[in-house]
Structure formats: structure tokens, C-alpha cells
Design a protein around this nucleic acid. Structure first.
Lengths: 247, 247
DNA sequence: CGACACATTGACCAGACTCAAAGCTAGTGG
DNA sequence: CCACTAGCTTTGAGTCTGGTCAATGTGTCG
């Protein structure tokens, strides 16, 4: 029988899945019964590395994580930021070899779920299989949104777009309200996500503060002018495919 | 009973799936029985548009397609190029609203397969469901590879990387041999895929010819120095997750 | 044959990068 | 509890990759 920490962990997963779909009682029960192994990790620690062949997936319960790839000379590209409820390496369920790394951004609590259990779950509950698939498809949709930024947006537009996206993702799982949210990213992280240098990110942020669009202090982002931020980012939340929209 | 054109269409899908996994006879039979509707399309025609809610997926039988998104002022980001055997809008099966467009690049023959039939297929054959899921995960892996290029590679490295990728994808389904392959892209297409201008793409190509890395004439790419191209691109084919590797 | 889209080249420009030097700030250990 | 430190932020000065604008050449298709 699942223990209390198990229930806490899987309840977090349920909350996340309910941000992108509706679950039946039976499905909720099945998820609650998943076996998990809890771990507490320090900040900036690799969870899974480029080249690994993991045998379990990682559910984030507390803290942030990110996925990235390093080039030979140290250049880094960040692909995504992840918050509680996310399973950032869900793709490892069906693509055995990692082509990038997953690491914590902050101190974090994570739950490891064996591939075997997830595979079993999706076979017994095809609806959940579809839903996990859907989650990886939304992951891909976010990659495409970032590609538009990397390829075709100005630095200013791109930073604005990232802030809109992160705020909505946090809001969808109850981690943000009143245009205020945690943002435990350094300017170096933002730079490596958006294909810029930290120096340039700093200048863009200065400009955004100057235009009274945002406040960003001590790991907290406050969006001072949501509508205006949406406008300059040309932000359309469709790609997040959130069930309970809030934009 | 499926007609001959149906068999041709679904056989193309089988060849593609076998480039990323192994199929059982039963699975092959199930795919061969899929109902399809054939269409011939002119070059540069939208197949599905940003915002649509399609009720079928599109299997490419002949010709090339690409996915893209337009920004308000006409800036375009291309996300992917697709070749025969690909189902570029497979994600529409579980994410109803398109967040980008799909269009032909050349004159093309495509087969439309009802979502209903695909959903039914994946329920009856969970192994195929997993395989289609896997295909969308590889799609996402390719997005990540492009993100590294867009964010962190020089223009030269990026073009080299794209050519390596396209050659291997074509080779995997038997459409390229001897470092020679079709490449029906304009320099504008390449620019919009890699986040550059067509002028700069032209200069990069000139430089690549100068270094005797490639020849590119009349829609045909010849890679004159494969090893050297791999090296400058820092290309690692792992992310394509091909079953029968050929790098 | 003519038109139109694409490729190529040159001249000039700018957004973003590099390098460098100070300030901050949040942990750490004494 | 505070001083130290390492990493992060901020700013300035100068540079460069890649963009803009524009003209001309080339190829392909009706």
C-alpha cells in the first residue's frame, strides 16, 4: 500500500495533469498507487546526464529543474525550465538514450518513478497513456515557441515571451498569483536559454524595468504591466494547451 | 479491403517506422489496413494552418513538406523539414489545436489518415501506440538539436549541422546514397529554419563550397567531405535515434 | 519569350558580443 | 554574528557577426 509521502508525490502529479486535462476517479487512483522513491537534491546538480540510459523518470515535487546540452567548448543551450508537477524526462520512457542533461536549478525534492511502473500504468489505463503522450507533445510545443524566439524575435521580445510563459505555467499549478512569481534563474541561465550573453540579458532587463513592465528582485518576478508585456512579446498562450486558461 | 494505393501509402509508413524500430508481422498488417485518402498537392501549399483543429493526420508519400509559424510582421520560423514516410502533424492526434502550420515545399503526394483510425490502431496495438509516441519524441529531439543551433552555434556550424541531419534522415528511408541527396530548399527556407537572412546563408554556402565541403546545385546536395562536415558541425547522430545507423 | 522568383555580390549598419572593472549578495565557516 | 568569498549583477568601451538595402545575374516555368 502506498505510504503518505507517496501520496503527496503522486498528488502533485495529478495536479499537474489536471492543468492540461480532466481525470476520472479511476485514473486518479491509479496514479496515487504509483510507487515512488523520494530524494532531496542540492541546487545545480545533474539528475540525468547526456548519454545516460535511465530506468526511471523524475517527478519534481519542490524546487526547479532545467534541461540543457553542452557543446565541446562549453557553450550551453538550455531547452526548458521545470517546476513542481513536471516530469522533465518523461521522454526517456520511449527514447532510451538521453540526448541532453537534466539538472536541478534550486535545492529540490524529486520522486523517481520506475519506467516499468509507468509503462504498466499506460497499458492498464490507455487514457493515461494518451495523457502522458499529450504532455510530451506540449513539451514539444514549448520547444517550438522557444525556436521562434531564438530564430526570429529580438532579445527584448524574447525575454518578455519567456516571462509570460513561466508566469502562466506557474499559475496553472497554483504557484503564482497577482502577477507575482518565483524566478530562481540567474541572468546567465536566462542567457543560455535565449541564446544571448548574460551581459545583454542584463541590458534588456534594465530596459524592461525602465519601461515599468516588470520588477525582478531576489528571485521574484513581478509583472507590472501584463497586457503590455503580452503585446510586446506577441504572446499567444494557445501553445501551452492549458485546460483552465487564465491569460 | 484496402486498395492498391492504400497499400502503397501504408507501406511507406512502415518503411519509416522501421527506420526507428522493429515491427512484428501483426503490426505491419494492422498498418497496411489503415484507410487513407490520397491527395496530390502543388508546391508551397498549406496542408494544415495555425489555429486549425484537424480531424486527420497527413502522411507524406512523395515530395517534401515543412512546418512553420509566422509572426505578425511576417517574420517566419521554420521548425522542421519532412520527407516521404513522415507524418508531420502526428501531434494533432492528442493536441487538438494547431499552434503552427504545415505546408508542402515541393509538389507532393500525401495520404490523409483519420484520427479515429489512428486512435483505434493505437488502442488495439499498444506497441504501435508506443511507436507513434516514440516518433513524436524523436521529433522533439530534433527540435532540441535545432535549438542548440539557433542559440549557440555559428551560422557556418549550423548550416553544416542541418546538412548532416537531412542527409542521414534521407538515407534512413532509402532516399540518399553516396553522400548525394535531393535538397529542394531555397536559401530563404534555410535562412528561416536557422534564424538568419538569405543573404547570410548565401555567404555561408559560398564559404562551404570554397572549403570543398559540399556542392549544391539544382536542388541536389553533394557532401564532398563527410567527416570534415561532421567535425565542424560537431554532429552527433544519437538524437535521431535511428535503428539502422549509418553515420 | 517574358516574368518572376531565387541567387549573388557589394557597401554600409546595428544588435549583440567580448573584455574588463567595479559593485552586490547570499551562503560559509570561524 | 560577522567577515570572507564566490558567484552574480551592473556598467563602459570597443568589436564583430550577421543584418539591411540595393543592384545585378540566373534559371525556370507558363
Amino acid at each position: 500500500m502506498p505510504s503518505a509521502p507517496n501520496q503527496h508525490a503522486t498528488a502533485m502529479l495529478i495536479r499537474k495533469l489536471e492543468s492540461i486535462a480532466t481525470l476520472s476517479d479511476e485514473q486518479r487512483q491509479a496514479i496515487l498507487s504509483l510507487p515512488v522513491r523520494l530524494h532531496t537534491l542540492a541546487a545545480r546538480q545533474d539528475i540525468v546526464r547526456d548519454g545516460d540510459k535511465p530506468s526511471h523518470c523524475c517527478l519534481i515535487l519542490d524546487g526547479w529543474a532545467y534541461r540543457y546540452k553542452l557543446l565541446g567548448d562549453g557553450r550551453r543551450q538550455i531547452f526548458s525550465f521545470h517546476i513542481p508537477g513536471d516530469v522533465p524526462d518523461l521522454q526517456s520512457l520511449h527514447v532510451p538514450t538521453m540526448d541532453h542533461s537534466l539538472a536541478t536549478l534550486t535545492k529540490a525534492t524529486v520522486a523517481f518513478i520506475p519506467h516499468e511502473s509507468l509503462q504498466d500504468l499506460t497499458l492498464r489505463h490507455p487514457g493515461l497513456g494518451t495523457l502522458f503522450w499529450r504532455d510530451t507533445l506540449i513539451d514539444a510545443a514549448i520547444f517550438r515557441a522557444w525556436m521562434v524566439g531564438l530564430g526570429r524575435r529580438s532579445a527584448f521580445e524574447q525575454v518578455a515571451h519567456l516571462f509570460c510563459e513561466l508566469y502562466l505555467k506557474l499559475q496553472a499549478v497554483g504557484l503564482a498569483v497577482h502577477y507575482r512569481c518565483p524566478l530562481p534563474l540567474t541572468q546567465i541561465d536566462i542567457a543560455d536559454a535565449l541564446g544571448m550573453t548574460n551581459v545583454h540579458v542584463n541590458r534588456v532587463l534594465k530596459e524592461m524595468r525602465g519601461q515599468a513592465l516588470i520588477t525582478l528582485r531576489s528571485q521574484t518576478l513581478v509583472i507590472e504591466a501584463w497586457d503590455e508585456l503580452l503585446r510586446v512579446a506577441e504572446f499567444d498562450p494557445t501553445y501551452l494547451h492549458l485546460e483552465h486558461r487564465a491569460a
